[in-house]
Design a protein around this nucleic acid. Structure first.
Lengths: 356, 356
DNA sequence: ATGAAAGCGCTAACAG
DNA sequence: CTGTTAGCGCTTTCAT
């Protein structure tokens, strides 16, 4: 261009290099050429409009419109080491418990200009490890885990990857990185005390067989025993375990089982609102008065809880806040230089309604 | 290398170029160096193990283990023009209706080695358009849309992007690309005929205000009128509209409204199982016999439908199949050369239980 | 079966 | 404020 005076058509052919892959769509280069600027300038016009003159800004924008250019974030991410992708690992989305969190995570991230990648791990830890490799391969700007990562390999992988991590829905003294959760033990204890204050003296549990639910139930049972809410001499409260994720049918069947074995129970702590709905349904079908003969407490405060009949007393976990907080933590970490330690106990509350 | 006889240690220092960005973690180059092969060979060992000798395969694998190397799929995607990412656009995940699809989409894609990016559009079309730009920027190997893309700009963007698209949950003569859905009109008609066959003669609707639900209701109403299932002279069946996404409370309130205006209705077609649960709940609270005095039909066959009391008669949409089929379509399109036209009407079925 | 070279499309770093 | 240059980490193309 600078030392070859030849016209465009008369160029000396360059050394016969083999032709390379041909491009697909419009690239930043095309836009830049059309606007008559260097690619980097076009890049600035799009990413840091303030760093560019009005003139050029206008020309680049017009070029973008004319060409229908859409930036390739894969390329941008590779160059800048920022993917603006966040991965979430959920046991399963169909359990409904984590919906509110996923919903709010997606929405919050979108507001920051980030996107969510969803991974489902099931309730076994093995899938989780496997998922992790795929996730890290995407070089996300953050990973949101449901629960605490228990597998040491998983922890290690995450740690060495250097990706910001938020563990959620639980508490631990040694988080991998950031943490937004609450104490399952305290939930169990609080529900036991609550039922005690309502005069219940023969409590039982109906729970999913996952770690967190069982820890709630253990604490519930311990407190209940302490408060004398079980048959004399019992060391734990009657309980029935069902596989996670729970559903309404398990609640119905569970209540039948419990009642067959322990006809005297007067209160039931369910590990999820779905199970509680099943219990309510079965109670209604059998003509068992709730809360008169049997009090029922759920967990999750799913949208339907308030509208059941009787309205379901339940433990509210603010999933939306978990999601929003996790999103904020990751974005801040990813965009600011200082490393803040994000560790939050968001707590829980017992929503007192009619079923207990 | 070919004309400089210098030893490795005695190299003439290269012209003092400014130092470039320094790399973060382990790259394929590191692995290759450790294995004593060229990067491309290491790449082959990982991606097409058959194209490489046993010897080298072993060395590369061992190098990967030693270094803890995780391939950077951003870089791989950029070079190969395959991101192995699929984007899904859902109105909202919290409505529960699309859960089964998202769940199965995630799982199916994972099985093929793809990941899902989740985007929520809300029920307004505007957000959808906006989302699209972000999505296309990621250069996904496919986009799964919930419903038909109605916005012409959206269609155009998608079309020119060249990304495989699957529209779902609906039917249209002019899909953007592929399609996995069913006819909402036929659903409405089928439910009307079903209720007619059960001897119901004063039907009503309780529906979300979204496009698809309203089309079901229109067809339901038309058929019902045709079959004489409304008050004499009526041109449409009584109906009550609630905002999407629906919940149980809306079902309860809706039933009250409908009953206040039309005390004689004997059957109610709800636009979702959540609404139907609300109707069942309100009916129970008011002592209205279901299905005796009022038959109730839902839509979705959510997991709880079979376990309600009475068990909910509902229209089953096989969300899992929609998800799995969409995943397969996209993966096939993305990995095979031939362009198959994926257009499937997966139909629906009325699951006859006790509420109607 | 293995490798060298040349980018994929973008941005960081360094000048001017 | 704008441009030049050199990659980000991988895979394609072509050659052996």
């Amino acid at each position: 261009m600078d030392d070859t005076p030849a016209t465009k058509k008369d160029l000396i052919l360059p050394p016969p290099r083999r032709s390379r892959r041909k491009s697909g769509g419009t690239t930043l280069r095309d836009v830049a050429a059309l606007a008559g600027v260097a690619p980097i300038t076009a890049s600035r016009a799009l990413n840091t409009p303030n760093a560019v003159s009005e003139q050029i800004l206008k020309r680049v924008r017009s070029a973008v419109e004319q060409t229908g250019y859409v930036p390739n974030m894969l390329a941008g991410g590779l160059a800048s080491r920022k993917s603006r992708l966040v991965a979430a690992v959920i046991p399963t989305i169909s359990g409904n418990v984590f919906l509110e969190m996923v919903q709010s995570l997606t929405a919050s991230l979108a507001a920051y200009g980030y996107q969510l990648m969803l991974g489902q791990s099931g309730y076994e830890d093995s899938r989780e490890d496997e998922l992790l490799e795929t996730i890290i391969g995407r070089r996300p700007d953050g990973v949101v885990l449901t629960g605490i990562m228990r597998s040491p390999q998983g922890r290690q992988r995450l740690l060495t990857s250097g990706i910001p991590v938020v563990e959620t829905w639980d508490l631990t003294p040694n988080p991998i990185d950031m943490l937004v959760g609450f104490s399952h033990e305290k939930v169990g204890e609080a529900v036991a005390r609550y039922l005690h204050s309502k005069g219940k003296r023969r409590v039982a549990t109906l729970s999913a067989n996952d770690q967190r639910a069982q820890r709630r139930m253990k604490a519930f049972s311990d407190t209940a025993i302490e408060l004398g809410m079980a048959a004399p001499g019992a060391t734990e409260v009657p309980g029935w375990l069902v596989p996670a994720p729970t559903n309404v049918g398990m609640g119905r069947a569970g209540l039948r089982e419990l009642l067959a074995r322990h006809p005297d129970i007067d209160a039931l702590f369910c590990s999820s609102d779905m199970v509680a709905l099943g219990v309510l349904t079965e109670a209604q079908a059998q003509g068992i008065a709730v809360p008169g003969r049997l009090a029922v407490v759920g967990l999750g405060d799913l949208s339907f809880a308030r509208d059941l009949h009787p309205a379901l007393t339940t433990v509210r976990i603010d999933g939306a806040r978990i999601g929003a907080t996790a999103a904020r933590f990751i974005v801040e970490r990813s965009e600011e230089r200082e490393v803040r330690d994000g560790i939050v106990d968001i707590g829980f509350s017992i929503v007192e309604r009619d079923s207990a």
